[in-house]
Design a binder for these strands. Structure first.
Lengths: 348, 348
DNA sequence: TTGAAAGCGCTAACAT
DNA sequence: ATGTTAGCGCTTTCAA
């Protein structure tokens, strides 16, 4: 035992605890002995007594969409700054996260973050009973006890619609993601609502299941037809990239002139010159910080209520869609679209 | 206590342990009570006594390179199948992983996997003393006690060189990644060695630091010059994608005709029609399985030696580089290059 | 097959 | 400031 190294027992514990009542002399003696013996505190044992593991369970469904690795990395970093580590759980896209969550709970994680996934009401109840805060990132839910952080899906999609209308487009199409995903539904509603409010439509609808291959197939069919739309809004960038690939490389279309394609997220390659994907940027950094903040509040006070945050992003104008005559401003070297009369579209 | 539910104590333990000595009757009674009370075994407590946490510490340095999210996801899945979870540690690219590892060890992880990172001899010793197996994925090391799984960097780079030579290229360039990374060094050596052996060269050298922006800058300078090479080998796909973006979108070059660009990894978008990146494919699935297998062997027998595996991949022929007249075969709908006389280049 | 008792490595009162 | 004692929730001999 490290405790035999010099003399003591809980002194060791205190020496490894921030702000504990120990003399510098003792602490340094302990540290020294520890270094010599290769001793380090066993966090599992500590967790047992403090009832705090310092671990956050994070469930992520798929990493192929490049948006998620970035979110995951930032989550990891942000939680690390707050003194937490991430226990990673991966599932298949579209799967129920229940079996995963059963596992997570056994590890006595301090909190659970679901990245683009939802939980059943059953697990909502389980977590509540266990006193484990749950935060959904990039998905909504009706469950009362779980916190939610999303981008401004409805408003963002409305902005994209307004942008396309301002660009002179008249035949619109929407590519849905997973039908069960709130992101896809919210973006679809926001998009359609704006168009309907302006007497435009109908909006042709295809489904890409948030999958690159499926989105490619859908794009091929949609854009390869004689009466193709002149504007396509894909529910996320991942699918929009598939659409651009098909449009340009397979169909030989001049994206941004013959057909406009816009997305949502601002996933990594969207900004590549070769793609130039015009998209509604999700403020990842702010979203992640919000997740951490909410988690900490709930951890600090078990009675703290579930919170719900919708974080606005902005429309990054690049080359995949025809540009409106006005409203484009340059911010930090990036062009974004800010139509003049604020509130051109309603946000219910 | 769940134990009060019916009657017993260690019976509960046995009921939740595979292959323990319990009657079906007892087990089902316990399970029932557990369900009613929302009880589940505390894995931290179990870890304390069994000295097995069931957790693998995985350190990853950066996720921007799309190759890594895929590896991470597969690692998570493969370890899950073996009954392990992943505790995720992220660091900055190029950083020492020592501070991270100090953390990892406190969690009493069963093993450590370093993804594109190395450890100091100090931590090599620490881990060895603690009896924790360490596996490096996609990096080599000289430390005796750590296992290593990599792709065939040397041979792969040689194959790419042979491919470019067969394609009639004569002016070669190499874009290095991080100078400290074994992958970059090994690939450079393999590439240069083949060319030198065939009396070709010199190879112009630029550095992209495995970073998209740095690689773009390097590409701009290299490919924008009057005496640009006709073949560029980037130490990984991430940088090759930057190079293609610059070449096509900025410089207006016809990649695959005016200049050939090849990479290494087969990161996600490499196969996109828009990029068509010819690259040496790393067999991720096999590499990950090998990591898990090695880990399990060392966990099963603490005396098992460190192992080292180099897994061969293959050259996927797409459109970013001029094609040789012969040697291209079609496998599973993908074109790969298999030069006829096996062993056209040496593999020291 | 089951229970009783001991203890994994730590922290948290409570003394001192 | 430091030591003593008890116990977190589990697994594990050892008996029965």
């Amino acid at each position: 035992m490290a405790r035999l190294a010099k003399v003591s027992q809980s002194a060791v514990s205190r020496s490894f605890t921030e702000g504990a009542s120990v003399s510098d002399k003792t602490r340094s003696r302990v540290r020294e002995a520890a270094a010599a013996l290769g001793y380090r505190p066993n966090l599992a044992a500590r967790a047992l007594i403090t009832r705090r593991s310092g671990i956050i369970g994070v469930a992520v469904t798929y990493m192929e969409n490049q948006f998620y690795p970035r979110v995951l990395e930032m989550l990891s970093q942000a939680f690390a700054r707050a003194g937490y580590r991430i226990l990673l759980f991966t599932g298949k896209r579209g799967d129920s996260s229940d079996p995963i969550l059963e596992e997570v709970l056994r590890y006595r994680v301090d909190a659970i973050v679901l990245l683009s996934a939802t939980l059943s009401s059953h697990f909502d109840a389980e977590c509540q009973q266990a006193g484990i805060p749950v935060v959904l990132l990039n998905r909504r839910t009706e469950h009362a006890n779980v916190s939610v952080v999303t981008g401004a899906n409805h408003e963002g999609a409305g902005t994209l619609a307004a942008f396309l209308v301002a660009g002179g487009h008249r035949q619109f199409a929407f590519m849905a993601g997973l039908e069960a995903a709130s992101t896809s539904r919210d973006r679809e509603v926001g998009f359609n609502r704006y168009l309907a409010a302006h007497g435009l439509g109908p909006v042709r609808r295809v489904v890409g299941h948030y999958d690159f291959v499926a989105a490619s197939t859908a794009s091929r069919q949609l854009l390869g037809s004689a009466d193709r739309p002149d504007a396509l809004f894909c529910a996320n960038d991942h699918m929009a990239m598939a659409a651009i690939n098909v449009a340009r490389a397979e169909l030989g279309l001049d994206v941004g002139r013959e057909v406009s394609i816009v997305g949502f997220d601002d996933a990594g390659p969207a900004a590549w010159p070769l793609l130039g994907l015009t998209t509604y940027v999700q403020p990842v950094e702010a979203m992640v910080e919000e997740v951490v903040a909410i988690t900490r509040r709930r951890l600090a006070d078990p009675l703290a209520p579930a919170e719900s945050r919708v974080l606005p992003g902005w429309l990054a104008v690049r080359s995949s869609a025809r540009r409106p005559a006005t409203g484009i401003v340059s911010v930090d070297g990036e062009e974004i679209w800010k139509p003049n009369p604020i509130g051109t579209f309603e946000t219910p």
